[in-house]
Design a protein around this nucleic acid. Structure first.
Lengths: 338, 338
DNA sequence: CTGAAAGCGCTAACAG
DNA sequence: CTGTTAGCGCTTTCAG
């Protein structure tokens, strides 16, 4: 049996209330001797208050939950570091969950976290649990990160995808690429994916390049799938009918595309240029170093946590939901030619 | 105010006990009508039991904590995925924490998790909180992953570092390398680091290669530091006095070393070979693809969770602590020459 | 088959 | 300056 506050009180010869006050730093008007006695007993018994009991009473857990889409993605882990640091500084604990881009898992995690009475929630959402999220947000502050939720208004921290894509396409065009294909994961419910596809089309139009349906390819993450999609794209007979560059909608795609292209024995950038959205630490070690549109992920994590803490402290009656847009930045490396 | 079990009971016209039984699936001897009425009220009110209250009473949270050393390391995230999957399957929740290789953070997380009454704990420890860990382990099952804790016996899941290093050195020697340097992070408290250093020395001996103090270099992760250490190692005048290969003790070091070497304008593997401990998804995309000793990280996560669950269910009186050793595997790529 | 009552470990009025 | 009391929301004997 773990030692409880009652035991501490008994040994110190005081009441539970007094010990409780001590624990909560309310020793303004506490007898110095009492204080010392309690401190000593606590040290002796190595007493630690039960956080469950405390939270049950206080109705605050000082804990926030964060659900990321895919923890294997460096994008997620950088965001996590940002969230974590800000939270720690403010004295909040973090419960981290990995939805694995699975709506069912996401739903379960949201529920689990709510059940555990978290004070707030940060989600990189699959986009398939909007009703649930909206409902939870009535009671518990939620901040969405990276991905917006359509049809519901919740605090959101994300990046200006349109601007990033525009920089990417401009760069490719400037380097003489007229055939620009795009590879993306299914963009049904994931806002940045959709935005990037739309921005891609818009940017092509700006440069008077025709949008080719077959050059906007939707893929899954399986290596074989990506490989076959690339074969379809690049194995045409007529040179004029092949794209000379590929824009990848996120870093996981970029990595897989580079891997597949190498496997095909095609040279980057000579035969095909590659440009990706999202930077990651090892992008520059790749052969050739990959040109990317970088997002300030760590800062985004910071900001999301910041916003959430304000909501938690401000009470439910705060202000209207806001959206914070970060600026993307094109990092020119070697994968798009000169 | 969130809806409570009392409210559900009131509306369903039954007692709290009955609702509680329903919630816990104890409807063996429950009136079908009662059951349905409760189900309906719960659905109507969208009632969710307060996990804090429940756990406070039950003294079980169905939650385990995991503390990793560095969440930015793909090694950690793969382990996490392994832990997660096994835990989910068994109906346990996971609270994930990132100690950032900081003993103080680790200590705080351990305490936080204990306070939250977790049922078990998995730690990739800094090695600097052994007393605390041993103490907690008296009450709550702990499984160490990757890194052992010296002087205390706790369930541990790790890899046979010695064997891995041996494979690495054998490979380098087979390719004609007689000058083999090693780069490692400080190995004071981190068991695999120490083991790898020792195995490195042992393997050199086996091949009758002299151990050179100045070729075993301890570094921090800062780019500049690594760069300067490499300069010191490789800028010697006399060719005979420079190592022809570098063995990196883990993946973070490997990445940084590759980055630094490229920055120096030195060619891998022609001028210097590189071999790393730990594989990661993009190692093969690097120029040149890096030869590594891979660990079955996902499986290790699985196993650690598995072991922990058994301990949790088996009660504290289980058997003696055990150590599970996984087999490393050399993945030959291009960074060590032919 | 169901209810009453006690209590998990803590906090928070309210007294004194 | 400190103690008494009454819960937080749930589970769990023990009756009936």
């Amino acid at each position: 049996m773990a030692v409880t506050i009652a035991e501490v009180a008994r040994r110190a010869g005081v009441s539970k209330s007094t010990v409780s006050r001590y624990l909560n730093g309310l020793y303004d008007h506490m007898g110095v001797d009492t204080k010392e006695r309690i401190a000593q007993v606590i040290a002796e018994l190595d007493y630690r208050p039960n956080a469950l009991a405390r939270s049950l009473k206080q109705k605050r857990t000082h804990t926030v939950g964060a659900i990321v889409a895919n923890i294997l993605n460096p994008f997620s882990t950088s965001i996590i570091r940002g969230i974590e640091d800000t939270l720690n500084e403010a004295g909040f604990n973090l419960i981290l969950c990995n939805a694995d881009d699975d709506p069912a898992k996401e739903r379960d995690y949201v529920n689990m976290l709510v059940d555990k009475q978290i004070d707030g929630l940060i989600i990189n959402t699959t986009g398939c649990n909007n009703e649930l999220i909206a409902q939870v947000n009535q009671t518990i502050p939620i901040v969405l990160i990276d991905r917006k939720a359509s049809d519901i208004t919740i605090d959101t921290v994300t990046v200006d995808s349109a601007k990033g894509v525009r920089q990417a396409i401009d760069h490719l065009v400037a380097l003489g690429h007229a055939g620009i294909a795009m590879l993306t994961l299914p963009y049904d419910h994931v806002s940045p994916r959709l935005e990037r596809v739309q921005a891609y089309q818009a940017a092509l139009a700006v440069h008077n390049l025709a949008f080719r349906e077959e050059w906007l390819v939707q893929t899954s993450m399986e290596d074989e799938v990506i490989l076959s999609k690339l074969h379809a794209l690049l194995d045409g007979e007529v040179t004029a009918d092949k794209p000379t560059s590929i824009f990848c909608a996120n870093n996981m795609i970029t990595m897989s595309v580079v891997k597949a292209i190498k496997q095909m024995g095609v040279t980057i950038p000579k035969e095909i240029a590659v440009l990706g959205f999202d930077d990651w630490e090892w992008a520059q070690l790749i052969d050739p170093p990959v040109t990317v549109v970088a997002q300030p992920v760590y800062d985004m994590g910071n900001k999301a946590a910041d916003l959430l803490i304000k909501r938690i402290k401000g009470g439910r009656s705060s202000k209207k939901p806001i959206t914070i847009l970060f600026e993307p930045q094109l990092l020119k490396r070697k994968s798009c030619g000169e």
